[in-house]
Write a protein that binds this DNA or RNA. Structure first.
Lengths: 334, 334
DNA sequence: GGCATTATCTGCAACGATGTACGGAAACAG
DNA sequence: CTGTTTCCGTACATCGTTGCAGATAATGCC
């Protein structure tokens, strides 16, 4: 049996409630009493029972993080940082993988997972805004990513469009004219993929170059799909002199396929990505990409969520935070 | 206010305890009663309060996973699989990053984190066996990795030595004679690094080649340290014709540095790694490495831990599980 | 000195579930 | 028809905390 508050109270010669008061920094306690309680706690090795505390207080001091797949490098790096930031404010992070399946996202949003957490960092992929709005309960939700952009929700995101424009402009400045895009449907214009594609199109427009849908290949945002998409482009015979992977995993998969096929990077085809995962720096050739300010995203999203939980952020409407970005020019597209 | 068991009981016209019994699959309940309760649950949208259940039952149905850094690709991929496997058995995984710091490992082992979980998957790095033995409480702990190999503990590991021997033998078979090792101290012989180094030495022995400590470079198991280690070797002028990175991150960092310096891989220097993270397949050149049966590791470690928690595994001594491995021969060391 | 105010501590109820013990009805044996 | 089992369901206590509402003592004010 573990040591309880009652044991501490007995040892310190005070009431159970006083122990509770000491632990909760109640204002009116004599220093001497406080000391006795602390001594008793130390002597008995008391540790508060978090479950009981949660039951009584309704708070778990855990934050939920819902993402599609923790093994995706961007999410792994983000989750790692989020945990670090959260722990500085006394919260833990509980991760749930949705697999980008609407059903699982829904369960994470309103099922038992929700109960375990005081608030949610939610990366919607399959669910739409109205569905989320009607199913989110009363606890705070901060959305990550760009699948849902809606004034009803708090949102932390990045400058997808501008950054994609910057990447594309950089490729254009390098003399590339037929820039393939991997990871989107040609007609997409919403969501992370859509926004980045918009940015790409804007850069083309600015340069007076026509958009060619044949250069846009869809695919899930993984290395293997990046490789497959480029294989498809090469096989189809569509000429291109650059590839913009809508995230680094796609770009790295694409680059791999190019090199396997004997296409020289960047000589024949330049490659650029998005996310600046650690891997990008160490790829060969190293990957030109966008660093989307992950530290800022982690800091702001955790900050916003905890402020909501603790009632420090009172804005009625959703707060939208957009982190800055930096273009990282490396060997794959110098 | 959320719907409680009491509400369900009232709606179904039974006692609170009967609702509890229905939910816990108590044997003796008339089908009609069970039906009424289920109807009431469905009608009211009742969901059991996990916190209350935990307080009363002492179980949280959460497993703790302690690892150094979730952003390391191997751990990210492992964590992702562990979560999937655990969820199939009705458990969640709560991750704690230790940063390979003894103090943090200790806190994870006996602090509040422990309370939140029914059992621990623990990757010790800084702590030693006796310290862990004396601090682990009464809840089950399954160790991962090889830093601690001790009959007192359940352990799930891989065939480090054999696999390292196989990799090294493969490099030797390819005609390499001066194989640098990145990620260990020359004199190391315990822990993951030590075991893999032992395997390397065994292969050298078998081939009648002398061990040269000058070829062994230490470094944390990250890409940047792999690059730095190889930079050091190149600068020192020690000749070598292969690099064995003790994990893939090291190997990929090493390979990057070689290529940057104009060393051709595999022509001048072959490179091999360990772990077979997804990235290895898509590196350029793709990385020869060991696939350590991560699925098996995930399956067995979760299985063992849950069996301990639920009292299904009764062995007094620690159970040791060693997953198989497969050598993946790719371009970096064909 | 009388009365309001402030400081310090306490007891009880409650959070929402489960474990134990037990009561009554039905089924069965003799 | 009585006595024992087997079913089915209920009541009450309990897990370890915190919120609420006092109780008592000390202090401030005029």
């Amino acid at each position: 049996m573990a040591v309880t508050m009652n044991d501490v109270a007995r040892a310190a010669g005070v009431s159970l409630k006083t122990v509770s008061n000491v632990l909760n920094d109640y204002e009116f306690i004599r220093p001497a009493t406080k000391q006795r309680v602390h001594d008793a706690i130390a002597e008995l090795g008391y540790e508060a029972n978090l479950t009981a505390r949660s039951l009584r207080s309704g708070k778990t001091r855990m934050l939920g993080l819902v993402l599609s797949d923790l093994s995706a490098p961007y999410y792994a790096e983000l989750a790692s940082r989020l945990m670090t930031v959260a722990s500085r404010r006394g919260y833990r992070v509980l991760v749930e993988q949705s697999g980008a399946v609407a059903d699982t996202e829904l369960t994470a949003l309103q099922g038992p997972f929700r109960q375990l957490t005081d608030g949610l960092l939610f990366t919607p992929i399959a669910m739409e805004a109205d569905a989320v709005a009607s199913r989110r309960g009363t606890k705070p939700v901060v959305l990550l990513g760009e699948h849902i952009v809606d004034p009803r929700f708090d949102l932390v995101t990045m400058k997808n469009e501008e950054a994609a424009t910057a990447v594309t402009a950089h490729l254009l400045a390098g003399g590339r004219r037929r820039i393939a895009v991997v990871g989107a449907y040609p007609e997409e214009s919403a969501g992370t993929a859509g926004l980045r594609l918009n940015g790409y199109r804007k850069a083309l427009d600015d340069a007076g170059i026509a958009f060619d849908p044949a250069l846009v290949a869809p695919g899930e945002w993984r290395r293997d799909s990046g490789a497959a998409a480029v294989a498809g482009l090469l096989d189809s015979g569509v000429p291109f002199d650059a590839v913009f992977g809508l995230n680094d995993a796609l770009a790295l998969g694409a680059m791999h396929e190019l090199l396997v096929r004997g296409v020289k990077v960047p000589h024949d085809v330049a490659v650029a990505g998005f996310d600046d995962i650690d891997e990008a720096r160490f790829a060969s050739p190293s990957l030109t990409t966008v660093s989307p300010g992950m530290d800022e995203i982690a800091e702001r999203s955790i900050g916003l969520l905890i402020d909501r939980i603790e009632g420090l952020e009172a804005a009625e409407d959703g707060v939208h935070v957009e982190a800055g970005f930096v273009l990282k020019i490396r060997e794959s597209a110098p």
